[in-house]
Design a protein around this nucleic acid. Structure first.
Lengths: 192, 192, 192, 192
DNA sequence: GATGAATGAGAGTTCATTCAT
DNA sequence: AATGAATGAACTCTCATTCAT
């Protein structure tokens, strides 16, 4: 952004900033886990040991922070789709295992599913990211299973992902087992 | 105050209070639908055209209001369970149709499912009401279906209701069809 | 208000009203004692078993109610002044005993002294009543004591009463003995 | 954060915070004087020209603010006790003069005495501070006067201070002279 | 760049007072 | 006359966001 002499070290200040950014991501992950993604900004700042304004500098909106916190895991999940498809003889099994991975991800993120439900326009960017990244993967898996006749056609992949997200939300109730419910739903998908 | 002559109006003053109470319930239903059950008390009062304190008079806590708003429909749903069981030859079909009724109910109540997810202790009374009323009905339907071998045993009725509630939450996403997802899950329940 | 036959008893409805008024006074006395004179109007109404508006009908302002509640005792106190002066050889002793009566009165009226301190203009009528009734009595006692040289001249009776009221206020503190402090002050008054 | 070079400003950012804190203390003192210590937080904020939350940042509870407002003067008063005892030949005179100082203090604090009367548990910390700081001083003065026979024994210092506070409360009445009444009471203390 | 103090909008709740019945 | 439901102002406290340092 500023005039940088060509011979100067390419990113000196960045060291601080990056350290801060990582501390922030760690703190946010912890805070989201403990109190949900709606946790007060101050709490995150306090955990990270930085001022509140530092969060705003790095992540102008809460959605930006949420996306950043979960980006790695979303990426890993997205990349697992084609891999599973390659290694499983049955595309339905690949789909089922991939959904399991998605549940693994959501299951540990207290409150993430909740915010995916929100229609707060401030979360639009968040929805967009999650769906843009995962819907195509889900679609590929579904299409493959449909092609071999294991699953009925015309199921929207976005809807399926959304349903999984919903089933993983609100785990406060003691006798509720989200994974089992998701598996039930995936079982219902199987033809014959 | 007590029952007077049979022709005397049973409660004179209640006329406008009852009118207000109904206006309040209508306004609350609308507000809950539009903004979720966490909507500011002031908004509900404004919709009903009454002062805030009027809400507190009729419904001392938010949970009281929520229960009141949905009581009629919860009752109707609960009563439909045994009726369906009596008229359907297959208990599984009765269960499926009852779940459909539950979805009908939740589907139009944007935000009701959301609060059922909340672990806010202030909502405990609310959870208690919904579950106390509906879980036994669901259990009866499930047990019947298990007995004739249509459904595998050992599924917690509370968990099932909870899952349905979750699937009906957050319908903001355009291509998401909660009813279809619920049917998928119920299909997954069917043995054979 | 309604058509009353000329031969009807002259004040039929008054019976109700008077009964109510007395219930109100009793309830207010109890409530003032328990929670101070600032007690919510509703509490008084509830104790009296009447509606709040009934209080407003009988006593348009809080000050009116307070005056009514304590009128009898204020009158008794006022009347005791000349009597004491007549029976005591020493006017100073009469004064001291009269002040003691005043303390007796205030001592049991949790919160009355407090409101006498308030400069809320709504209480002006209250101040006026108390002072108009008691200041002349106090003045007479003081003047008599001054005349025989028992007390130094130029002490304002209003100030003295006010001081006694203040000393009787706020008896919440355990080791505070209002009467003893008043006596100390009265002792300080005595010449020689 | 720690002490840097001796010439460096010890706390850079504090400048305006301290300015605000002082403004807050001044505003609170004024507001307490004008409307009592129960004055709405917003009024204090408005007088100080700051937002309400600024008050909560500096003084989490109302009692904190009250203590802070009066701390300096309470300290000065406490410290004056032993000094007076040292310089006065008569302990009674020292006591009388110290009480005068206490009256000086209370006299200008319309509403301070009022809160000292309150039995609101939220004010407990406040009472504790005032009494812990001043009662021992008063006790020392009283004990000294008792020892030389100028004052009768067995007067509780807390009760005496409390009485002085009460006499200084509610100065709204025009012809009431609190100082004179206190002196009368102190005169009553003197043996012979 | 980072800090954290300040801001001000808003939520819940209470209560004196009015008014329709 | 009496009732008590309704009103709406008032108050406390929280938090996302901005801004001076």
């Amino acid at each position: 952004m500023t005039d940088r002499a060509s011979t100067a070290p390419p990113a000196r200040k960045r060291a601080d900033a990056q350290r801060n950014e990582q501390a922030l991501l760690d703190a946010a992950a912890a805070a989201f886990g403990a109190s949900g993604v709606g946790v007060p900004v101050r709490d995150i700042a306090a955990r990270a040991g930085v001022g509140v304004a530092t969060i705003y500098r790095h992540f102008p909106t809460r959605a930006d922070l949420i996306v950043a916190v979960y980006r790695h895991q979303v990426e890993a999940c997205a990349e697992a789709g084609p891999a599973l498809l390659a290694e499983c003889p049955s595309p339905y099994d690949a789909l089922a295992r991939w959904i399991d991975l998605f549940v693994d991800f959501l299951d540990t993120k207290h409150g993430l599913a909740a915010v995916l439900q929100s229609d707060d326009p401030g979360h639009a960017a968040l929805h967009a990211y999650f769906l843009d990244r995962l819907v195509p993967v889900c679609k590929q898996l579904l299409d493959s299973a449909v092609k071999v006749g294991e699953v009925a056609p015309r199921l929207d992949p976005l809807g399926l992902l959304y349903a999984v997200g919903n089933l993983c939300a609100g785990q406060a109730v003691p006798r509720y087992d989200a994974r089992r419910m998701v598996r039930l739903m995936i079982t219902g998908l199987r033809l014959r």
